[in-house]
Design a protein around this nucleic acid. Structure first.
Lengths: 338, 338
DNA sequence: AGCGTATGCCAAACCGATTCGTCAGTTCGG
DNA sequence: CCGAACTGACGAATCGGTTTGGCATACGCT
């Protein structure tokens, strides 16, 4: 079957009895080609399994066909803050969207070797969780590499292209849900507010408490490891006036909170309700499944690639923001029997 | 400063007063060029900041310059079994090694869209944790894409190119260490033996116990979530004849074991020693730091890329295996005060 | 009929590198 | 002193596409 070499445009031209030029025009809807000729060429190309050589394509188009996906090397905790499952949903979706558009999504190297970035002439970059006024973003843009961020550079939200969840809305929805479910006193296991998402969530929580005349009840968990959530939750639960519900951000933290409740002999949800903002498979599968806002990471990844491609096309010449809605997944951890 | 266009080989040729051919020969040490001419050309190229255009390069060399890094889509639990921090150390190192050799490491899309793989004409692929007789590997090789696996396809270890840790040795070293440290009865929180690493580790544990005339004491934890490790450890600790040491595999599982010990009111290491085979930052930073075998994931990633490049060069025409040594990191969890 | 214009297709140039074959000049051996 | 062999450099072809400019032919209009 295999003809050794894969068919090129000249093979299609030969089979159709026309010139390479005409084949190119037909395939790209560019020049003037008679409709029936076009049809014939398309049919033959399809039959031969013709796929344009990407190198040759990129050579003429002065592109590389490469998009990078990476966290900011300016971040001292590279990629570490990301929820695993969140990233593992986002990255393949982004990769798939890029491939469909003829681009390849490359994994960014670590920040230690910035000169390698230059060697790879990227057409564009996707940066997750930028820091405020992130210098890396500025440098990329200065070099002419268009950037789209996942999460905002909070200092420059008006001047940059970004995709994000509405985390204030998501957090508020979680809090409202917990309140309706019967919670009286809601604690928050928070991350250090370094990225836009943690800033938004903390803000939403503080506002929500303030609206109820309640003081914020926050314990900070450094890192996303379950252990950090475990200990932060323990501190909340050991306090004199312990909460009857704890909300938190990442999947790992929520699992830590749940283990802390078990350790203290608290029943979930009877004695303590638990809810998270970022859903993940671990929450649905947990022994007692945990309510969470599903941020739709796959959609975020796809949307980010799409926005980046629009920048490359020139279809989005000025800063633009895309907000992906989240969906509350109500599970056992907040379903209190009456 | 920026001249608009970056310098091409003709710019170098013009500046040096020679032909493009000579420049090419000088830069690649190919044809016959007088030493002083070569020096002059190299100097000028350096000064101009010349970097060959990768598209043009790949076009002539009939390559794409793309290597994929992905887990096997045949695996029903894609990438999920990987330890996060393990992957986050491995991937950037692999990416860096690829970039240094002029290749880009692309993120594989999910298994749902296999036709996209074909569109991307890979020069080679890195597959983590293949399943036994993995059909995806076979398919890739059939299509002419050289593959190197991280971890072995246990059924075809003789016929494939792979990079792996010596997990039998690592596990045995951990067990020996725990015994010397004073453990009398060692339990094992294991993963389902689906991949080569979990198979090796289980085998090593069983052998070690057998050599001591002891029955294996194994609890299986599904998935790498801390929660699974927590519950598996609880089962071990609730048994009539509870172990005074627990070894396990991944970082997440070890943290779960530790939380289980805390919950049961057991002191680490006095009442229970804990050790893992795959080290990670969470173990070093844990409240009570945990002993573990550091598998050097960055070295694994680098070695895998190197082996793949050797296959591409033709320098490794027949199946070859590379074993990366591990290092035991002794920490508080096994340092029992006398 | 004559002229201008639109249509359908193609030849050639181009993108930026490598590589093959050639050529002029030098060195060496007989 | 002459031819062979070697040296250093170059022109042109090549990779696989796109794009520009041009050339026939057909058509419409006066």
């Amino acid at each position: 079957m295999e003809q050794g070499r894969r068919p090129g445009i000249r093979d299609v031209a030969r089979a159709a009895g026309v010139s390479r030029t005409t084949v190119s025009h037909a395939l790209n809807d560019k020049g003037r080609v008679a409709p029936e000729t076009r049809e014939r060429i398309l049919a033959i190309a399809e039959e031969l399994g013709y796929r344009p050589n990407t190198n040759a394509l990129h050579l003429t188009q002065q592109r590389t066909g490469l998009l990078a996906l990476t966290s900011s090397p300016s971040d001292p905790v590279p990629l570490g803050l990301l929820d695993v499952d969140y990233f593992l949903a986002l990255a393949p979706a982004a990769s798939e969207a890029a491939l469909r558009a003829g681009y390849a999504l490359v994994l960014g190297p670590t920040g230690q070797a910035p000169e390698l970035w230059a060697q790879l002439r990227l057409d564009g970059a996707l940066i997750t969780d930028p820091l405020p006024s992130d210098p890396f973003l500025r440098e990329l843009e200065r070099q002419g590499t268009p950037v789209v961020t996942l999460g905002r550079d909070v200092d420059r939200a008006q001047e940059t292209w970004w995709v994000d969840s509405d985390l204030v809305a998501a957090m508020t929805e979680v809090l409202d849900h917990v309140e309706v479910a019967g919670a009286r006193r809601v604690g928050f296991v928070a991350e250090p507010p370094r990225h836009s998402y943690s800033i938004d969530e903390l803000l939403a929580y503080e506002r929500w408490q303030e609206a109820r005349g309640a003081a914020p009840l926050v314990e900070e968990a450094a890192g996303n490891h379950t252990e950090a959530g475990f200990h932060a939750a323990q501190r909340l639960l050991d306090a004199a006036d312990r909460p009857d519900a704890i909300v938190t951000t990442l999947e790992g933290l929520a699992l830590g909170v749940k283990l802390a409740a078990e350790t203290r002999g608290l029943r979930v949800p009877e004695d303590l309700m638990i809810a998270a903002v970022s859903d993940g498979p671990g929450l649905a599968q947990a022994h007692t499944s945990i309510t969470a806002a599903d941020l739709a990471p796959a959609e975020l990844g796809t949307a980010a690639v799409r926005l980046l491609l629009e920048r490359l096309d020139g279809a989005a010449p000025t800063p633009r923001a895309v907000v992906i809605p989240s969906v509350l997944r109500v599970r056992a951890s907040t379903r209190r029997p009456r």
